Simulated scan of single mutants.
Amino acid sequence: MTDDELILATRARVAGRGLPGPASAEDVTRFERIVAHPMPELLKRMYLEVANGGFGPSKVLSLTDTGKWFGDRADTAMAYDDFAADPDYPLPPGIVPLMNRGCAMWTLIDFRTPDGQMWDWDPNLCCLPHALAPLEQSLAQWLTDWLHDVMPDGPPHRELSSRDCPRW
């Protein structure tokens, strides 16, 4: 699917959900300054053209506190700050929490990649040093899977980051 098709399909999928209106360009710029990386273009368009959060599987966090929480954080900036402030949750710079899946599990996006490579954070699989792993798909692929109802139930399938994990 093209980005335009993804935008249109996402709008249709979330119609009637009572989501917040689109984010402003200033909201996007402010968050890009916090992360110190440009937002992947498709994610930027989703926030600017669809809604300020609530789209996608399990509902993507808002860029700003809209009064509607789509997880246990008011917005993406709060989640990003929480990860950055906690030495037990070491994320590489530019990896941004996007969607809270509950039980300390997150879906994240890489702002360092133009297509927004997706990542998984699941400390329940092994241990904190191995909680982060790439999902080997872009934001476009991830959204396409959601739109076609082929997202896995529960945590995504992934290889553990290291086979030397004590719980492996």
Rank of each mutant, 00 (worst) to 15 (best):
D4K: 13
D4A: 15
L6M: 12
L6Y: 09
L6E: 12
I7C: 11
I7P: 04
A9P: 08
A9E: 15
T10H: 05
T10A: 11
R11H: 12
R11I: 10
R13W: 11
G18T: 05
P20Q: 09
P20W: 09
G21K: 09
P22D: 10
P22K: 14
S24C: 11
S24W: 06
A25G: 12
A25V: 13
E26H: 08
E26R: 13
T29P: 01
R30F: 06
R30V: 10
R30I: 03
F31Y: 08
I34K: 14
V35D: 08
A36E: 15
P38L: 08
P40S: 12
P40Q: 10
P40A: 10
P40Y: 11
E41G: 04
L43N: 05
K44N: 08
M46H: 07
E49Q: 15
V50T: 05
N52H: 08
N52R: 10
G53L: 15
G53T: 06
F55V: 04
F55G: 02
G56T: 03
G56D: 00
S58V: 02
S58Y: 13
S58G: 10
V60F: 04
L61C: 05
S62R: 04
S62N: 05
T64M: 02
T64Y: 02
T64H: 00
D65L: 02
D65M: 02
W69I: 08
F70L: 11
G71W: 05
D72I: 08
R73C: 11
R73N: 11
D75E: 07
A77V: 06
A79R: 06
Y80L: 12
D81K: 09
D81V: 09
D82L: 12
A85V: 11
A85H: 09
P87D: 14
P90E: 15
P90S: 13
P90W: 10
L91I: 14
L91D: 11
L91V: 13
P92Y: 04
P93F: 01
G94A: 09
G94C: 11
V96C: 14
V96P: 08
P97R: 14
L98Y: 01
M99L: 14
R101L: 13
C103V: 08
L108W: 05
L108A: 12
D110S: 05
D110G: 03
F111H: 13
F111T: 01
F111S: 07
T113K: 15
T113E: 15
P114V: 13
P114F: 11
D115L: 06
D115G: 07
D115I: 04
D115K: 02
D115S: 13
Q117T: 15
Q117S: 15
M118V: 13
W119V: 04
W119R: 06
D120R: 02
D120Q: 08
N124G: 14
N124I: 14
L125M: 12
C126W: 13
C127T: 09
L128H: 05
L128W: 00
L128C: 02
H130P: 00
A131M: 03
A133H: 03
A133C: 07
Q137S: 05
Q137H: 10
S138P: 03
L139Y: 06
L139F: 15
A140M: 06
T144S: 12
D145V: 00
L147D: 07
H148R: 12
V150H: 06
M151F: 01
P152Y: 01
P155N: 04
P155V: 01
P156I: 00
P156Q: 04
H157P: 03
E159Y: 11
S161T: 06
S161K: 02
R163W: 08
D164R: 05
D164S: 01
